[in-house]
Design a protein around this nucleic acid. Structure first.
Lengths: 247, 247
DNA sequence: GCACCGCTTCCGTTGAATGGGACGATTCCA
DNA sequence: TGGAATCGTCCCATTCAACGGAAGCGGTGC
């Protein structure tokens, strides 16, 4: 065997290595990392050493490997979500102060809502949306708000993808959800993500009325201020959109 | 010429590619990216294509390259600062609400303070500390707060490094700054970063009294509530430390 | 003391990475 | 309108960096 037995490139290997870190764990044993990433121990060792030399990984004593600070720095300096985050943060903070609940900001990636930012209070209800976490479009208010305001083509691709499990029924259910969300101007899911919580999200629209992001809150089921809540979110979303377009 | 003319590995090349993105620009022309990273156009093209296949970069039409969402996701799922950020955010928000000023959270990396998080108000004073931005230890209150609470060895290494430009004078000045910061329990810099602002930072200490992070604010020079401000920061810092250790 | 386990180093093999060259598309002047 | 410059993309022979099995080394547990 020689250069790459499995036919994948160095880039593939590096990605496998970086992806091998589980979501919650911060440090991994070299041998475990090798196994998780499906790389021979020797190869993993060499790559880790090289990556660590650049600070992309941090190789501690005893083969303990953790993500490196420089990688974080590199990515967060130039992240594609940076402008969005900057535009949104002040508004998110305002929302959070007024409603005193979890606020989150998401973008659409594939058929998932990818959460870009989230503010949560010590006392507020559980919020499954983690930063850099994903939730499928149809199980999150953020996802619905995002998908409801995409162009027809993307929506139908999404719905097609969906038809597999049991034909047309599921597709129609989601279609109705999206349609309602579109006409209401906001998405809501009661007790879907978590039995005791209520997710509400509004789209952040670009000048062509496409959703570039979604702004949402997670509130307890007993929360009754829906009439005040949705307009507040919509106002904030407009503010975010304005700052995005001005910049 | 064949495999690597310049004697650097694929990892080196990838790092050069990723580092080539300027701080503020979100998209780069392929040719410019190649030049910035010092790679032959062909090589840059191939690597970009490979990285884009994994979503680490996003190759738009016409050779427009931007950082990819998946890279951001990957890094922010497993970032070494994740636990710190989670522990600190609620406290940072409280501070911000009460003082209505910029709040920032930094860690020490080399001889720099690396800013991990920052909350800023639309109306508050300018704040040079950007997320994923750096400032040298001796020109930022965050840096001073961090360095003042490190072990002797690291401090003396830092001060040595410093002696180069003009011998002992500069070293002594910084030493005094660090000593003051240590005994006061907080760092302050008036008008150093920005002529009209005042930076104040306190350390977040681990059980061995070492600074793992710093919590700071940037306020206008006229701000007079120092007596209330420092204790508020210190209380928050203790709260963060407690949550870090409990978890 | 021996067996086990995991990190590290060594080194011969070889195919993946390399990058100059060519081509097509687009833009910009003259 | 035609020609030059620019930029992305593709091709492909060359070759050296990546590969990974094997062996070494240090620590831990029985």
């Amino acid at each position: 065997m020689a250069n790459s037995a499995s036919g994948d490139s160095v880039v593939d290997r590096i990605v496998r290595l970086l992806s091998a870190f589980p979501e919650d764990v911060s440090a991994l044993q070299l041998s475990e990392l090798a196994e998780r990433s499906g790389l021979p121990l020797t190869t993993a060792h060499r790559l880790v050493r090289q990556l660590a030399a650049h600070g992309l990984l941090d190789a501690g004593p005893g083969g303990l490997v953790r993500p490196g600070l420089r990688l974080w720095e590199l990515v967060n300096r130039t992240a594609p979500t940076l402008a969005l985050r900057q535009a949104a943060m002040p508004f998110m903070e305002d929302i959070q102060q007024v409603l005193n609940q979890n606020v989150n900001l998401a973008v659409l990636d594939g058929w998932d809502a990818l959460f870009v930012e989230r503010l949560s209070r010590l006392g507020s209800v559980a919020n499954r949306a983690r930063v850099a976490g994903r939730m499928p479009v149809h199980t999150s208010s953020a996802g619905l708000a995002l998908m409801a305001h995409q162009d027809r083509l993307l929506q139908s691709q999404y719905l097609d993808q969906f038809a597999d499990p049991d034909g047309k029924v599921a597709t129609d259910a989601v279609r109705v959800l999206l349609s309602e969300t579109f006409h209401q101007g906001f998405a809501q899911l009661k007790g879907v993500v978590d039995p005791d919580t209520w997710g509400i999200a509004v789209p952040v629209l670009d000048p062509r009325q496409r959703a570039v992001a979604s702004l949402g809150v997670v509130v307890p089921l007993r929360e009754m201020r829906l009439q005040a809540l949705v307009p507040a979110l919509q106002t904030a979303a407009r503010g975010i959109a304005r700052r995005l377009n001005d910049a």
